[in-house]
Simulated assay, not measured.
Amino acid sequence: MSKMSVDEIIDAIGNEKTFHAVSDDYSFIIKIESYVHFICGAVHDGHQFRKELWENCLLSEYERWYEEDPETLNMVRTHPITIAGLDSRFEYDLNRDPENAIYEDAWGKKMWKQPLSKEAKDFSLAKHTNFYKVVNALVSKIEQLFGRCIVYDMHSYNWRRWDRKVPTWNLGTSNIDNNRFGGMVEDWRASLSEMIFPNDIDTKAKVNDTFQGNGYFLKFITNNFSNTLVLATEISKVYCNELSGVIYLDIVSIVEEELKKRIPQHATIFIEKTKP
Rank of each mutant, 00 (worst) to 15 (best):
M1L: 13
S2C: 12
S5P: 01
E8F: 02
I9F: 05
I9V: 13
I10T: 12
D11P: 04
D11R: 14
A12L: 12
N15G: 08
K17I: 14
H20V: 14
S23W: 07
Y26M: 14
I29E: 13
I30F: 03
I32E: 06
G41L: 14
A42M: 07
G46S: 07
Q48T: 13
R50S: 08
E52F: 04
N56F: 00
L58Y: 00
S60H: 04
E61N: 10
Y62R: 11
E63A: 08
R64H: 05
P70L: 02
T72D: 02
L73R: 12
M75P: 08
H79R: 01
T82Q: 09
I83E: 02
D87R: 10
D87Q: 06
E91W: 07
R96V: 01
I102T: 07
E104Y: 13
A106L: 15
W107Y: 14
G108A: 12
G108T: 08
K113G: 00
L116S: 05
K118P: 00
K121C: 13
D122K: 07
F123H: 09
F123T: 10
L125E: 08
A126W: 05
T129Y: 15
V134W: 03
L138Y: 06
V139T: 11
E143F: 02
E143S: 08
Q144D: 14
G147E: 09
C149K: 10
C149V: 09
C149T: 14
I150T: 10
V151K: 06
M154Q: 08
D163R: 08
T173K: 10
N175M: 08
I176Y: 04
D177I: 03
D177A: 07
N179D: 10
R180G: 00
R180N: 03
G182S: 04
G183N: 13
V185Y: 07
R189N: 02
R189C: 03
S191L: 14
I196S: 14
D202V: 01
D202F: 00
A205G: 02
N208Y: 07
T210I: 10
T210F: 03
F211A: 05
N214K: 15
F217E: 01
L218F: 01
T222N: 10
N223F: 01
N224A: 05
S226V: 02
S226L: 02
N227A: 11
L231R: 06
L231S: 06
T233K: 04
Y239Q: 00
L243S: 15
S244Q: 09
G245E: 08
V246W: 15
L249E: 13
E256L: 12
E257V: 10
I263A: 00
Q265K: 14
A267F: 04
A267Y: 04
I269Q: 12
I269G: 09
F270Y: 14
F270Q: 06
I271P: 08
K273L: 09
